[in-house]
């Protein structure tokens, strides 16, 4: 698997998890800020994923 394929796989899983986890595992439990916190972490992970894709660029 190439670096690009690995990155694409991770991004795909990340975006799917951004929908599946809040609507699956985190939905309907006791009252908490878990969903809010999860999506904050998700946003930060998106930033990291994009940074991983663009830091290799040259000039």
């Amino acid at each position: 698997m190439t670096g690009f394929q690995r990155w694409l796989l991770v991004v795909g899983i990340l975006i799917l998890s951004g929908i599946a986890i809040p609507y699956g595992a985190l939905s309907g439990g006791t009252v908490s800020v878990e969903v809010f916190v999860f999506w904050c972490v998700f946003g930060a992970a998106v930033v990291v994923a994009i940074a991983a894709g663009v830091t290799r660029w040259r000039g």
Binding site: L14, I15, G18, W39, F42, V46
Partner: peptide, 8 residues
């Protein structure tokens, strides 16, 4: 944030 993830 899903919209935001479109920046990928």
């Amino acid at each position: 944030l899903i919209y935001f993830s479109g920046l990928t």
